[in-house]
């Protein structure tokens, strides 16, 4: 795991159904400047996390990311500030809940 360079780091709120992977931890502080980096670093600490959240270049269908409470288009390339709060949630778009894979 890379040495944290940042003084402050983004916080990821782990969805309840994924807390098995984090031994019940809800809020994980983890380095990263993009969602991709954050997920990658999470996976280093809690193996399996990446597989649950990602496909090759994108979030898994059915999963959305909120950064500081704002719904983005769900791109793993979205940048995150050092004080960002990140939520992974069931995807909802266009008034539609995306079906699971």
């Amino acid at each position: 795991m890379p040495t944290p360079y940042f003084k402050k780091m983004p916080t990821v709120v782990i969805p309840p159904l994924m807390r098995k992977l984090t031994d019940g931890e809800e809020n994980i502080t983890i380095p990263g400047t993009t969602i991709r980096e954050v997920i990658s670093n999470l996976d280093d600490r809690y193996p399996g996390m990446k597989e649950r959240l990602c496909e090759e270049y994108r979030l898994k269908p059915g999963i959305a990311v909120y950064i500081n409470g704002l719904l983005t288009r769900g791109s793993i390339l979205d940048r995150v500030d050092t004080d960002a709060e990140i939520h992974f949630l069931p995807a909802i778009s266009g008034g539609v809940a995306a079906p699971p894979d």
């Binding site: 994108r58 269908p61 059915g62 266009g94 539609v96 809940a97 995306a98 079906p99 894979d101």
Partner: peptide
């Protein structure tokens, strides 16, 4: 497979 339709992903067969 999953089709990404912009408005959300959908299983193409469905």
């Amino acid at each position: 497979r999953i089709a990404d339709l912009g408005e959300g992903a959908v299983n193409l067969k469905y």
